[in-house]
Structures are given as C-alpha cells and as structure tokens.
Amino acid sequence: MKSAVSLLRNRLGFARLHAKASSLERFGLEHLRGNPLEQIKSAYNSDFYIPKCRFMQYVRAGDTDKRLGMVSENGSKMIELSGKTCAAPDMLSFIHQKYCMKSLMESAKYMDVEDVKPDLRLLPPIDSPGKIIGVGCNYYDSCNERNIKVPKAPEFFVKFGTSITGALDNIRAHQIAKRIDYGCELAVVIGKKCRHVSRVAAMSCVFGYMIAQDINARDWNVFLGGQTMLGKSLDTFCPLGPIIVHKSHVPDVNNLWIKTIVNGEERQCGNTKNMIFKIDYLIHRLSQFMTLCPGDIILTGTPAGAGAYRNPSSYLKPGDMVESEIQKLGKMRNKVVNPYF
C-alpha cells in the first residue's frame, strides 16, 4: 500500500504542543514508514484523496500555534481550517461552535488542498476534554474469555485528561505499575450538551469517533485493592487519535472491526457489533446521572484478547510496540518506554 507522505520519517514530538521533536532513531522507530492517518482502501477511489470531515490537530514546523485541519482518507492531502474559515483553531472549541458539516464541505471545495508536510507534528485530536468515561467488559467475547456472566448494566470508570497522549507518542511503563495491559477501544466524542436524553435522541448528541487505547495497570486495578481510577489514569495511559472522524462519515458505527497488534503479533481482533451496551444506550444511561458536554469522551469497551487473559498472561514492557486500528478511523503506533526515557 502506497502513501504519499510519512509522518514518521521526521520528528516525533507529537504529544504536547511545546514538546521538541526527536528523531525516530532515538525512539527506535526508524523501521516504521507507515502513515497513521492513512486507511486501507483502494487507491483507485478518487474520494480517497479528498479531505473530508476527518479532523486533526497539529503544529507546523518552526511554529508553536495549534492548528485544525481536515485530512483525506489516505492521509496524504489536507485542508487547513485555522485562519482560513470561521472554524476555531482547536478541536474542542470547534465542537462547541456546532459548525455545519455540509456548509464546511461546500466551503472546502474552494480551499487550497495541500500535501501533508513530513515535518508536521500531530497532536492528540482532543487534549483537554471535560470528562473521559469508560465502560468495563462491554463485549460478549470479553466476558467469555474472563468466564464471567454478561453484565445486566454497564459499569463505568473514569480516566483523567493528564493520561492523554498522541497517536505516535510513547507509553511510559511507570515503575509503580508492574502489570501494564492494553485494550483498543472505539472512542465516542460528544457534540452537544445533553441531560436525561432518550435512546432515540442519543446519537444526535454524538460529534464523531476516534481510536483510544485504554492502557491499564492491572496490579492497581485488581490486585492492589481495586484502585481502578489510579490504574487507568497514569500519565500517557490514554493514547488518542490520530483523528476524529465526523459521524457523517461512519454510516454504521455498530459494525467496525478493531485490532491491536503488539510487536507484530495480533492480540485483539473484534467488531463493534459485539458490544453488549450500544453507544445510544451508554449515552442515555450516563445522561441520567450527569450532564454530558461537547468534547467529552466515552470509551466503549474492548474486545477479547487483552494481555491479562491470555495463557500465559502477556503484559506490556519497555521496548514493546502497540499498534491500534479501527476500520474507517485510522491507526496508532505507540512504543512502550521506561519512565525516564
């Protein structure tokens, strides 16, 4: 599969706006040449090269300003929205604007389309959400591998914004965590404020979708007193990205395949159709207890194949490469490093 650009060939300071870029060799990623923004799709499809409502946050080389852009499905072409439209320069503010996607796509026909520059620094699609809420054991195959009954109601947990890192950034293997696990999840981004919303109206509250890795310190989550919040909220334990795809480009969110590959070995291969509690129910349920706001993130669970439930168990360690992919949403590559790297 060919791609016109490789974001990995250059610098890797993607996670934080003011972080300095570092060479691939320093991170041991010199063998990677893929584009995390690209999709697996026929190159003969002309729409594959047209920027759509697939939003990314980034910083240009030699700049410190966060920018917002739209990218094509193959990750090679982009349109910068910042300063060229009425769109806000960052994703969270843009969601609050409630911009009309149809009008945006019409305007995009008259905007300059450019190549995604190789020195562009990719940022997390959202870096300061009000809430990150996850749901545990939300796939039938996950219940089967754990030998537990299918839950009658979803069990929620929280992660904090300081755990967010980017699609190409490192996951730090903190010394306080000995059993670090992975779990690729479909992340739902809320598009408007909602409270006591019905299931019928729930999907109207969605802005779009992205990939998340729910990195989890199992020893704190289970073995050391059930400290779920601590085990899931360590710094860098929530890789997000590489983009947010607007819901209009995901016609059937309940039929997307999900994969996690660790060091070249496929560990997870599932499908969102196997969710126990669908997205509309999760939004409905949560909104009975709290107000969901634009930019809030809901992690919808992970399919079977987590390291803790393999035989033997297989936890992440420094040097491991975790690749996450969801159909239509792109891919992430995160290397596990020691905490002082």
Results as ranks from 00 to 15, higher is better:
68 L>M: 10
341 F>W: 13
282 L>D: 00
248 S>L: 03
85 T>Y: 05
325 E>I: 07
273 K>G: 06
269 C>E: 03
317 K>G: 03
82 S>P: 11
268 Q>N: 10
165 T>K: 07
101 M>P: 11
304 A>D: 14
300 T>C: 09
132 I>V: 12
324 S>A: 13
137 C>I: 15
266 E>Q: 14
159 K>W: 03
29 L>F: 09
314 S>P: 00
195 R>N: 07
53 C>D: 09
174 H>N: 14
243 I>E: 05
334 N>R: 12
266 E>I: 14
5 V>R: 09
10 N>T: 14
108 A>W: 01
104 L>F: 11
178 K>W: 00
262 V>G: 04
264 G>T: 03
22 S>G: 09
243 I>R: 11
113 V>E: 08
257 W>P: 01
206 V>L: 03
30 E>D: 13
290 M>N: 06
57 Q>F: 05
152 K>R: 10
14 F>K: 04
14 F>L: 14
71 V>I: 15
259 K>S: 10
301 G>S: 04
273 K>R: 15
74 N>A: 03
84 K>V: 11
226 G>F: 08
140 Y>D: 00
232 K>S: 01
16 R>M: 06
243 I>S: 15
18 H>M: 12
132 I>N: 02
114 E>Q: 13
30 E>F: 04
78 M>L: 14
143 C>R: 00
110 Y>N: 15
20 K>E: 13
7 L>P: 12
62 G>T: 12
156 F>N: 05
187 A>T: 01
127 D>K: 11
35 N>A: 08
29 L>D: 06
286 L>S: 01
288 Q>Y: 06
142 S>P: 00
